[in-house]
């Protein structure tokens, strides 16, 4: 963590705790957008939002892939000591360029019926403006929630559903934006027909 202390102002104890609680809130209430910019602003580099998620959840006990982004991969490895892995074997898959999204979602670990916790979390950077909204339902949502989403989010969820995971297998999706919006879509969250 020396790189974290030297280069960034992110507090590995208190900022990590606050970031985690925001991520937990987003996971427990899918469709709710939480704001992480206060903590992302304490990290430098091109992708402080992705780094804020990485330093909160990753360490040498897990693996990650940053797809084709070598600078991001180096930054995450230096800050967290997490193992670099191929996207299909990584516990966390960071997608900073949406052109990598299809491969990342299609190849991400889905876990097994007996060990569904071995599945991947896919974290997508999405700065596109909302083009409409989706009705989401599932655990954590009181009946239904309407969420304004970009085309990237729509495409990601459509692609996720096309994998036809047999629950409890599946992947969990995080969407982060440069202005600090954070949205979580766990595997049980479903898109309701309009």
């Amino acid at each position: 963590m020396s790189a974290l202390l030297r280069k960034h102002n992110f507090d590995s104890v208190f900022d990590s705790q606050k970031m985690f609680r925001l991520i937990l809130e987003a996971m427990a209430n899918p469709g709710r957008i939480v704001r992480i910019e206060e903590y992302a602003d304490k990290l430098f580099g091109d992708e402080p939002e992705l780094l804020a998620v990485a330093v909160t959840l990753l360490d040498n006990g897990v693996s990650f892939s940053a797809c084709e982004s070598e600078p991001l991969s180096e930054e995450i490895a230096a800050l967290t000591l997490a193992k670099r892995e191929r996207p299909e074997a990584a516990d966390f898959v960071f997608v900073r360029d949406l052109k990598d999204m299809n491969d990342a979602i299609e190849s991400a670990k889905r876990g097994s019926l007996s060990d569904p916790y071995t599945s991947a979390v896919v974290i997508l950077k999405d700065d596109k403006d909302p083009v409409g909204s989706l009705m989401l339902s599932g655990p954590g949502i009181d009946r239904c929630i309407e969420v304004p989403v970009s085309m990237a989010v729509k495409n990601a969820l459509t692609l996720r559903d096309a994998q036809e995971y047999e629950y409890p297998q599946g992947i969990d999706l995080f969407f982060v934006s440069s202005d600090g919006r954070f949205l979580a879509v766990p595997r049980l969250t479903q898109i309701e027909a309009a």
Binding site: V13, S16, F20, L24, A28
Partner: peptide
């Protein structure tokens, strides 16, 4: 002691398990 007694590595592992548990309601995450 560290804030909240546990070291940060232990907290992170428990936090990751808690997030998986929320994603798969009722499933026991080791």
């Amino acid at each position: 002691y560290n804030f909240a007694f546990l070291d940060e590595g232990s907290k992170r592992e428990i936090r990751r398990a808690a997030l998986k548990a929320v994603a798969i309601p009722g499933y026991q995450v080791p």
